[in-house]
């Protein structure tokens, strides 16, 4: 897979504060890459640097294997923090200004407004828009040039549940077209629902990164009980893929190693003549995992 964005030892210091600390990561073509971290963890600063509006203190990055230039910028659609438009211009005129700058075909404007559900409001001035509409107009602006890569910074911020669902749906639809999406979010749930890869940031440092499945969903917990717990405990000690187990009252909580599931455990138990009266697979709460990741 081709590398769309490569970040190498990128740092940004504001005086004594290090907003981004020696960040290194790569985004592959076709992935939906989540930058996950609490507020103030350096997500926006990182995106600002790779989008050419914040000067890195040190380190480097490249888009499509090249430095950033007008040509590479035209292959990227990005929205950083808030939707930025002229309040006194209509939605359509705002997009005309952006189409000029992106060198985009002005015929795309109506099509894109339609895509984000603003076709009927194209002649409303930006200041008359609700937050959700502003966010959707920003998405339209990012999509105007039919870019290969979408960079979205908290795209569902401030939206109501329906708006959030719509935006996520739109992101997934765009990802289905084979486009690369880089998404910064402090919402774990969002990253888990939308992304294929994730990098977790904390105070400017990369804590961990990889496919979402490995980082966020690998640790499944199983709860088992049986009429007789003793043979169960004996077997658990011998099974190589059991990472950890704890007995609680009349059930056992088990954590399996990566790549194994409740099926494996159930099969082995049955093979040993143990019949479980209960087998529940429980995902460790995502919030809990997230907090563990950023604390460790």
């Amino acid at each position: 897979m081709a590398i769309v964005l490569s970040i190498d030892n990128l740092s940004k210091k504001y005086g004594s504060l290090t907003a981004v600390d020696q960040l290194t990561l790569q985004v592959e073509e076709g992935s939906v890459y989540g930058l996950l971290g609490p507020n103030g963890s350096g997500k926006t600063t990182t995106l600002g640097m790779v989008l050419d509006v914040i000067r890195p203190s040190s380190g480097s990055f490249s888009w499509f294997g090249e430095g950033i230039s007008k040509a590479t910028k035209h292959r990227i659609g990005a929205l950083l923090e808030t939707p930025n438009f002229y309040p006194y211009l209509t939605a359509k005129r705002n997009l005309q200004v952006i189409a000029d700058i992106k060198g985009a075909d002005h015929h795309n404007i109506n099509k894109t407004l339609d895509l984000v559900g603003l076709a009927t409001r194209s002649n409303t001035t930006f200041k008359g828009f609700s937050l959700g509409m502003k966010q959707r107009l920003a998405l339209a602006a990012a999509l105007l040039n039919d870019p290969e890569v979408l960079v979205l910074d908290e795209p569902t911020n401030g939206l109501d549940p329906q708006g959030i669902a719509e935006v996520r749906d739109l992101i997934l639809r765009i990802a289905d077209q084979g486009k690369t999406i880089i998404l910064a979010s402090h919402l774990l749930d969002e990253v888990e629902k939308v992304c294929t890869h994730v990098a977790v940031l904390r105070t400017g440092k990369l804590v961990t990164n990889g496919p979402v499945g490995n980082i966020l969903s690998a640790k499944e917990q199983l709860i088992v009980s049986a009429d007789e717990l003793a043979p169960v405990l004996q077997l658990l000690e011998r099974l190589p893929y059991v990472a950890q187990f704890n007995q609680e009252k009349d059930y056992v909580i088990i954590t399996l190693q990566e790549g194994y599931s409740s099926t494996d455990l159930n099969r082995d138990m049955f093979a040993q003549g143990i019949v479980l009266s209960q087998l529940v697979a429980r995902r460790k709460s995502l919030e809990k995992q997230f907090l563990e990741i950023i604390k460790s």
């Binding site: 989008l51 050419d52 509006v53 007008k70 910028k73 035209h74 990005a78 929205l79 950083l80 923090e81 808030t82 930025n84 438009f85 002229y86 309040p87 952006i98 700058i101 992106k102 060198g103 602006a141």
Partner: peptide
Amino acid sequence: TDEYSYRTIRQQVIDGLS
């Protein structure tokens, strides 16, 4: 200064202006 208060200058540099 409008370009700064609306942050459009930032967006326009992101979108391709040098």
